[in-house]
Design a protein around this nucleic acid. Structure first.
Length: 795
DNA sequence: TTGCAGTAGATACCTTTGTTTCTT
DNA sequence: AAAGAAACTTTGGTATCTACTGCA
């Protein structure tokens, strides 16, 4: 059987090769129309086009005129080359000008890209991708720093370290007593005073103890610029052992010595915590070129290490507040009310205080930035933190929670009260920009179309513009809590709410988006207005329950919309699975396809018809749940099996094809010897064809087998092309496994077909026999075979 | 020199259930 | 022959963002 098959296919191959040669001989002219006929179905390939483009030209701009006429010429003369270069893009336009237009497109694309790049460079703003990358990098860097702080804090809790520090008797008994003052009932402040005294003396003793201060490698943990990210000047990794040794001996960088002070206090049973100001690179900085890099002098200046990265906080149980101690850098102790000495200059490019994390001795981790930053509501500060967008906030909270191993304590409550107080006393922003998205205040002019001021709201102050031009201009300032958010009924429904009976709209605005256009074309004036309602005018939508048969009320499109949990009928469940509908049909129960969102077309393809509901599953009555889930898993299982079978089949086909190729090759060699020159080869093939009759059936088999193989290969290549640089982990998976089968085989079979040793032998034979045939033939046929296969797969 | 308002220019957002033609 | 896939469609106003500039 296999033998026969190969024979048939072998004949087919010869036939096709012959045809191809003929076509080539007759010139590309013939190939073209043939292809076109296929693509455009009924339209005959006639050479009518000549007048047509001219007419179009009159209508269109003069540019297209040129391109069209030139395209005609191109096609006539160099068609073959273009065919090879751009085989697939032809179907774009009608007939003749297609080739050239495709090329123009490519040119334009490249031109546009180049132009964009140039513009970016001129504007000194990085591309969108880089922006995203910087933000991700910022978050990752921050995570690493926070974990670093966590580990250091763990080390500081080590008994061995604490014991050794204690045994060193750095702190005399007198001072130790001060660190643990008793409550002075008459004047609690006196107790705090004692504590502060004790801390001061302990700090001085510690400073004395720290006799060797090493310098940082590079900038240490201070902030790096984006162009320094790849430069390798990290601190040398420290082992725990080394760390303990260094602290006990009082040597190390400022960071380690500051950490050592925390350990010292802990050794004397003081509730001290380690503060760490994390300095991930600034993702708000979108500049392409940094001034620092240009000037170079900015690398490390005198003030760079003035403010600490690590310091210490001590709990004062009398005032219920934390006392800040910076033993190494500033050598200060402070009880912070509104301003801290530790907050660096806002212009600093090396130390931007955005995330101050405190790690306590009970394995607690807390963001205490509030204590140290004066203007946390300033635009710049809010934007420089990853918590600026809700997603980032969620991420950040999760990280902090993961690093906190203890339960919440009373101390946390006291601290939160303090933070709350600080928030409230921060006051009104000093500049216009800081009012943007300010959580407390809003300028009258910034109230949006879809927002409304409460009726009884009064301005809480005025803001005077700083510029000279409008020095007289004074703007009203309101509390943001006096603003009501308004939404259209549809928007409310999207949130699972509907209008209350008798609801009255609060405001009418112009409709937005594509609806505006549609309704205005109707000519009715009312239609392009949108009525907005406040949340008070709405209530949670409760859908009707399914009846005993499990019938669910559907909308006019035959499905049910689930945008919120509450939109699922009470006695029903939502089951999300791509095969859920199939499963329901299979077990013949009542169900409703669930629309959970809408998909909008790509960036440019915004149109009426481009909005499509996303049906992510079904809603079924509660009592059907188990059955549906079981059916789904059954279907998924069988699909999985099908898939596996398919892939097995495919690899078998691949093997089959490889063997086939080998057989064809050896058949050719055996039967006809080895041919050298192209013309001779041609002759032979034509002759062969004359001898044999054509057979149709094998064609299909052949195509199927070959097709699978090459398509696999092609897909693989495609996915590679469109992959972004490996920012995302997903990308790499696509390269990997299954499609590679094809590629592997291809190269393999090729290398099999030209093993040099074989060829050499053959050559020798030929020389002896006096034949003028050489290895070139095998190559040639193989190549043509490839081309032929390519053609088949293309069509 | 510094901080600010204002600027340009790019970009994001909003939207929220087709129709026709070709292929399998 | 029916079902399903693919092609076609290609707004525009408002808000936001960011580096830069000129002014005081």
């Amino acid at each position: 059987m296999a033998q026969d098959l190969s024979r048939e296919q072998f004949e087919l191959l010869r036939k096709v090769l012959r045809e191809k040669k003929e076509e080539e001989a007759v010139q590309g002219d013939e190939i073209k129309p043939r292809k076109r006929r296929k693509r455009h179905g009924d339209n005959p390939p006639v050479k009518v086009p000549e007048p047509a483009p001219i007419e179009v030209v009159v209508l269109d701009s003069s540019d297209s005129d040129n391109s069209m006429s030139s395209s005609m010429e191109d096609e006539d003369f160099d068609s073959d080359e273009f065919e090879d270069v751009l085989p697939e893009d032809e179907s774009d336009d009608q007939g003749e000008d297609d080739l050239n237009i495709t090329i123009d497109k490519v040119d334009k694309k490249a031109e546009l890209a180049a132009k964009k790049l140039k513009e970016q460079q001129q504007r000194n703003v990085v591309s969108h991708e880089v922006k995203k990358y910087r933000k991700d990098f910022h978050a990752e860097y921050l995570l690493c720093l926070m974990v670093h702080g966590y580990i250091r804090n763990e080390w500081l809790n080590d008994d061995k370290l604490l014991n050794r520090l204690f045994k060193k008797h750095i702190i005399p008994e007198k001072v130790e007593k001060l660190l643990h003052p008793t409550l002075d009932k008459e004047l609690p402040l006196r107790s705090t005073r004692k504590l502060l005294d004790g801390l001061k003396q302990a700090m001085q003793l510690w400073i004395k103890h720290c006799h060797i201060i090493k310098s940082y490698a590079g900038v240490g943990l201070y902030m790096r610029q984006w162009d320094e990210i790849s430069t390798n000047f990290h601190n040398q990794p420290t082992t725990k052992q080394q760390f303990i040794k260094d602290i006990v001996r009082g040597r190390g960088t400022r960071d380690i010595l500051a950490q050592g002070f925390v350990a010292l206090l802990r050794a004397y049973n003081v509730n001290a915590r380690l503060c760490f100001s994390c300095q991930p690179p600034d993702y708000c900085n979108m500049k392409l070129n940094h001034k620092s890099a240009q000037s170079g002098s900015n690398f490390i200046d005198n003030d760079t290490f003035k403010y600490p990265i690590f310091w210490c906080e001590v709990w004062d149980k009398f005032t219920k507040k934390w006392i800040t101690v910076d033993p190494i850098n500033m050598e200060t102790i402070e009880q912070i009310r509104h301003v801290s000495k530790l907050e660096p200059d806002s212009r600093s490019s090396r130390n931007v205080m955005r995330y101050v994390i405190a790690y306590d001795r009970k394995q607690g981790c807390k963001d205490v930035t509030r204590r140290y930053v004066k203007h946390m509501y300033s635009y710049k500060f809010r934007h420089s933190r990853i918590t600026n967008d809700p997603q980032g906030q969620e991420w950040y909270d999760r990280v902090v929670k993961k690093l906190t191993l203890r339960k919440r304590m009373k101390i946390d409550d006291y601290e939160d009260v303090y933070f709350q107080d600080r928030n409230e006393t921060e006051g009104m922003p000093g500049c216009l920009q800081d009012f943007k998205n300010h959580p407390v205040y809003i300028l009258a002019k910034d109230i949006k179309q879809t927002q409304l001021l409460k009726v009884d709201a009064k301005e809480c102050g005025f803001f005077k513009l700083n510029s000279k031009k409008q020095s007289n201009k004074v703007v009203k300032v309101f509390y943001r809590k006096d603003i009501i958010e308004l939404h259209s009924p549809r928007q409310w429904y999207q949130m699972g709410r509907v209008l209350k009976p008798g609801a009255r709209f609060k405001k009418i605005i112009q409709k937005r988006g594509i609806n505006r256009l549609n309704s205005s074309s109707n000519g009715e004036e009312e239609e392009d207005k949108e009525r907005l309602y406040s949340i008070d005018e709405t209530e949670i939508y409760t859908p009707p329950n399914a009846n005993e048969l499990g019938e669910i009320k559907k909308n006019t499109y035959g499905n049910i919309e689930i945008f919120a949990q509450s939109m699922i009928p009470h006695n029903c469940v939502l089951i999300e699975s791509p095969v859920a509908i199939k499963a329901c049909k299979f077990i013949r129960i009542e169900y409703a396809p669930a629309v959970t969102s809408f998909s909008f077309g790509g960036k440019k393809l915004r149109g009426k018809g481009n909005v499509k509901p996303v049906i992510s599953g079904v809603v079924v009555a509660r009592w059907f749940k188990d059955a549906v889930v079981a059916a789904i898993s059954g279907i998924e299982y069988s699909l999985e099996q099908d898939k596996q079978q398919e892939s097995e089949l495919k690899s078998l086909q691949d093997w089959n094809e490889m063997l086939l190729r080998l057989r064809i090759k050896s058949n050719l060699n055996e039967t006809y010897g080895l041919a050298r020159d192209e013309p001779k080869k041609n002759d032979r093939i034509t002759n062969i064809h004359d001898e044999e009759e054509e057979e149709q059936e094998p064609v299909e088999d052949f195509q199927v087998e070959a097709g699978g193989f090459f398509i696999g290969n092609r897909e693989n290549a495609g996915s590679k092309e469109f992959e972004l640089p490996p920012l995302q982990a997903d990308g790499s998976q696509e390269y990997g496994s299954p499609p590679l089968q094809g590629g592997g085989f291809l190269s393999h079979s090729k290398s099999e077909s030209d093993p040099s040793s074989e060829m050499e032998q053959v050559n020798e034979d030929q020389d002896e026999n006096g034949h003028d045939v050489v290895d070139g033939n095998t190559f040639g046929i193989d190549d043509e075979y490839d081309a032929f296969m390519d053609d088949i797969t293309n069509e």
